[in-house]
Design a binder for these strands. Sequence first.
DNA 1: TCTGGGGTCCTAGGACCC
DNA 2: TCTGGGGTCCTAGGACCC
Length: 380
Amino acid sequence: MDAFFASVELLRYPQLRGLPVVIGGRRRTPQEGASAADAALPLSAFERLRNYQGRGVITTATYAARAFGVGSAMGLMKAARLCPDAILLPVDFDAYRRYSRAFKDVVRSFAPVMEDRGIDEVYIDFTHVPGGQEQGGRVLAQRIQQGILAATGLTCSIGVAPNKLLAKMASEFDKPQGISIIFEGDLATRIWPLPCRKINGIGPKTDARLQALGIHTIGELAQQDVAALVRHFGKAYGAWLHDAAWGRDERAVVTASEPVSMSRETTFERDLHAVHDRAELGRIFTALCERVAADLQRKGYCGRTIGIKLRYADFRSVTREQTIALPTQDAATIRRAAGQCLRRVALTQRLRLLGVRVGNLVPQSEVALQHMAAGTPELF
DNA sequence: TCTGGGGTCCTAGGACCC
DNA sequence: TCTGGGGTCCTAGGACCC
């Protein structure tokens, strides 16, 4: 989806169309849900980025804002210097999730073999869709774009290719509202000139290491000896880098999967000290455990591995986890295990973030009997 | 001007078992 | 006297993605 969060916001605030708008920072509270009247709010009613104080990053920026050099993951204070007049909107995940479901429903109505890749992205297997091969897939891609636009008012960009790796790259060739089709024979002309960082799976760390080796483009990566890549990056990742540079990817489109973990974390408005701010930290900690427990209950899962995450003021992170005998979705049980984890870390430095995670998940239907047998149905 | 929140997967060492 | 070869599970950290 094109600038997904920002595009959803523009649907309810059409008066912001064409203006620099960034989404980020504070979460929208339920009382702040936009009403029909908001569509007519005067521009002066919107908060400007220059007035923002505090922590937080941009999750999405409109294309008008991107022209100022602001973009995803950038700190809001930095963005405020680049574009002080930009309008700042708090995130509203409930709204984005509704639109996410809506566009995925449209996709599935055309092509049922769809893999969910988060809130604004999917992979689709066209192979067996009637008419999917017309004009190399362009006809079906156009129909999907039109269907999504009609159902949601949102635009998207589609890449069509022989595999997921290339399709993902192709989807970024012509944003917004583009369709790009890549054939195997296009590798040298359309993929190899791109920077290595464009490969989904090469992040900032690997990119820096590649650059240090004098490898900047995918074509340069492709020319490397596999053995040399394996020496530098390990057996599995080195071989994968070479395959990726040659456009090789055999992964299937996976239509269903079970969650592995659920977590909640929060960055404090100011750094907190374990002793000095003990009461406040304790309240936040318990609330995080309750939120994870509520998530598990709502989605029908229990987990055996309870963990915490801390981020110190200097941004170092540590994690601790503990695996308990029986999977749980009970807030007090999670709180107890997480509390034991917390006792195993040094708390002399100020903290900026605290998180609670439950892993090793199993569907709750598989757990009830275990707790009955153990005589602990209340901890289930 | 410090840098969100929710995830997945991988690695590597140690415990423990057969 | 020093020393097998699997295998699984647990833990901590890190890279990466949306």
